[in-house]
Each structure stands twice: as structure tokens, then as C-alpha cells.
Nucleic acid binder design. Structure first.
Lengths: 207, 207
DNA sequence: CCATGATTCAAACAAGTGTTTGACTCGCCC
DNA sequence: GGGCGAGTCAAACACTTGTTTGAATCATGG
């Protein structure tokens, strides 16, 4: 049985990912960790610093378990790297268990920011964003305007995050749609490649 | 000066849209409405029924102010109707003020459901979903599998909702991107038409 | 074995929440 | 004017939240 501090981070990761920072209660976390309510204050100071510790802790677990490049190299064609990016993000968002906590915490921070958002964006989100915009720029061509690159990247991550953010609604609307992650990833990649190609053609003007 | 009941619904619409059902407090709503805390209990019974009243009230304001067809007819080509759908949804989500409350409440319900989600889906979301899947089916061709129709529709609304759900994050990532609604709508329409076309080609298999 | 510091515990605390109460005010009809 | 019902109000209630407290327990080195 690991120490109380580790059990608290484990339990807090699960509860924060499932209920969000505000909805999660220290009592629920401590019960799940088999610890006393005062343990959080003793080991971390307060709820905020426990949350920051969880963000720091889960970051590594996420990148090692779901490498953002999924094993493809920077020399592979951008279509392959886009597919790897989508597949990695979707798996992080929809998987269950510890390695998925970090992406789910990021998704929650986006739709309901806590004071930790800014640090989280700089630490975790911006590197992924840079990777994605790099892929998009390659697909759009070097002379594509920055705005086209950004909106295309937003379209890609918007499709992926939708299955997390609106999962409760989608389950009611189209039962069973969110279950097959691999199929969803294939669709999003194909859809996005088509969308990026259409954006590229538009930028070149009529010919 | 309208009656207390009307002022409460007005204030509650603004507060619920901005803070969500759980984060909004009766006291904040009552102060904004210039009413006593007991007024909610007197006029609506409890917080839940005030929330339901707000959902009912704002629904009409939304559809009359931002008609989902934006004036285009069912006989217009599906490309035009898709553009109208995207533009209408995006304006609802990103505008400020009373007519936008309903869409923002829907967006909040999706990412953080309250007991009212199911009723809201049946009343407001499913009709819009039916309209969108109809457009997608037309673009994909009649023999397109149901799953392709659903995933394409999800890709379209996912892109739109992203600018609402992740607005705090996107503001940090790409300042200024979320400001020009009309440009965003044009991009999403073009991107989606390209994505749907790619999905259609895939469905027909190699030729 | 015991002293000392780290850790745990039940209990309490202060602040905030939705809700209820009972007195009070106001307008209206007989 | 008097009674009456609808509406309003300050105050309190019951409950949950994060946090603190001070004693009890444990572990470890002398």
C-alpha cells in the first residue's frame, strides 16, 4: 500500500477527471483514498495545490502512455502524422483509467477554466497546438495565411473534443456513436483532410 | 418596471448562461433582479424549476431571433442550407445578450449535464440535429450509410461548439481568432463541405 | 525504552448554499 | 374603513463546503 500522498493524487486524479475541479469535494477524494479529510491540508496545503500536483503528475503519465506522435516520425507525410495526432488525442479523451485523466482534465479546464488554465495551456496545450498547426501548414502549403492554418487546426481539435464535451448529449442523440474510437478517428482524419484540401483550394483562388 | 417573476427570469437567464446551473447562486440572481432571496421559492418553487422556466422562456427568444434556416428555403441546394445552419449556430453561440442565452445554456448542458438535459435534448437539440443530418444525407447521397451521416453531422457541430467550449483556451492560444464570427462561419462551411465530399468519395470505394 | 518528529484522526469551525418561516406591506373589493 | 389575499422582506434553518485544531498514534534513532 503506497503512502497517503500517492493515494491522494491517484484518487484526486480520478475524481477531478470525472467531476471537474469545482464539483469534486475533498471528502470524496479522501474517502476514495482511504485517508482523513485533514490529509489534503497536511500533504498539499489546500485543494488548489492538490489540483496542481495532479496536473503535474498526470502530464507525464499521459505523454508516455499515449505518445502524441504514435510512433510516426517527422519525416512521414503530413497525412500520416495528422492521422496519428487525431488517433492519439481521441484515445486520450475517450479511454478510461489513469492515462486518460490528463486529457480529460484539459478538456474540463477549457470549458470551465480554473486559475490553473493558463499554466496548463503553456505546459501541455501549446506544444500539441504547435505540432498540429505544423501539420496543417504543410498540408495547406507554405504560402497559406496564418489564419487559415489556425482555423483548420481548430476544426480538427474541435471535432475530437466534441466527442468528449458533448458525449452526454450525443449518447442521447445517437446511441452507440461514441463507442468505436478507431472508427471515429478514421472518420475525423478523412473529413479533416478533405476540409483542409478545400481550404487550400479556396486560398489559391479560382483557376 | 416589469413584475418580479419576469425580472427573475431575465436575471436568471443571464447568470445561468454565464456561470452554469450549479455555479449560479440564487442570491446572485435575486440581487441582479432586485428581489428578495425568497422570491425564487415563492414564484417558482425551487432553483430547478426556475431553471426549467428559463429554458422554456429562452427557447422562443432564440428561434425567433436567430431562425435556424436564416431565411433560406428547403428547396435551396444543401450547400446553401449548410452555410445557413453553421452561421445560425455560430451566431447563437458567440453573440452576447438575451437571444444568445439559450444556445449557451445548451452548450453548458452538454459539457456539464443537469437533470434537465434529457428534456432539453428532445425539445431543442434533436430538431436541429434532424435538420443537420438531413442536409448531410443530401450531400453524401441517398445510399450513404447512417453512420457516415451521423459522424459528418457531429463534425460540423463539433467545429461550431469548439469556439464556445474552448473559447478561454483558444483566446490564450490564438488571440483574436474567435472575434470575427462571419469569417469563422465561412471557414467551417467550406471545411465541412470538403470533409463531407471526402467522406462521400470514400463510401463509394475506389473507382 | 523512550523521546522526538512525522503522520493520522475525530471533531469543530467559518463561510456559503438552497430553502423555509412568520411578520409585514400593499392594493382591492365588499 | 375593514378584511383578505398576494407579494415582499429580514431572519433563520439545515446542510455542504474547505479548512483548522489539538490530541492520539506511529516510526525511528539514541
Amino acid at each position: 500500500m503506497p503512502g497517503t500522498r500517492e493515494r491522494l493524487i491517484d484518487a484526486a486524479g480520478e475524481v477531478f477527471a470525472r467531476r471537474g475541479f469545482r464539483e469534486a469535494t475533498i471528502r470524496e477524494i479522501c474517502i476514495a483514498a482511504g485517508a482523513n479529510v485533514a490529509a489534503v491540508n497536511y500533504h498539499f496545503g489546500d485543494k488548489d495545490r492538490l489540483y496542481l500536483a495532479v496536473l503535474r503528475e498526470t502530464h507525464e503519465a499521459a505523454v508516455t502512455h499515449f505518445p502524441p506522435d504514435m510512433g510516426v516520425s517527422d519525416d512521414d507525410p503530413p497525412e500520416v502524422r495528422l492521422d496519428a495526432f487525431v488517433r492519439s488525442l481521441l484515445m486520450r479523451l475517450l479511454h478510461e483509467g489513469r492515462p486518460a485523466w490528463h486529457a480529460q482534465l484539459m478538456a474540463r479546464e477549457m470549458s470551465d477554466p480554473s486559475p490553473a488554465l493558463e499554466a496548463l495551456v503553456e505546459q501541455s496545450v501549446r506544444p500539441m497546438w504547435k505540432r498540429l498547426t505544423g501539420i496543417c501548414r504543410e498540408l495547406l502549403g507554405e504560402k497559406a495565411p496564418k489564419r487559415a492554418v489556425d482555423t483548420c487546426a481548430a476544426s480538427v481539435v474541435g471535432q475530437c473534443l466534441h466527442y468528449k464535451h458533448a458525449s452526454a448529449c450525443m449518447r442521447l442523440l445517437v446511441p452507440g456513436l461514441c463507442s468505436e474510437v478507431a472508427t471515429l478517428a478514421s472518420h475525423i482524419t478523412r473529413f479533416s483532410l478533405g476540409g483542409i484540401e478545400a481550404t487550400r483550394r479556396e486560398g489559391q483562388g479560382p483557376c
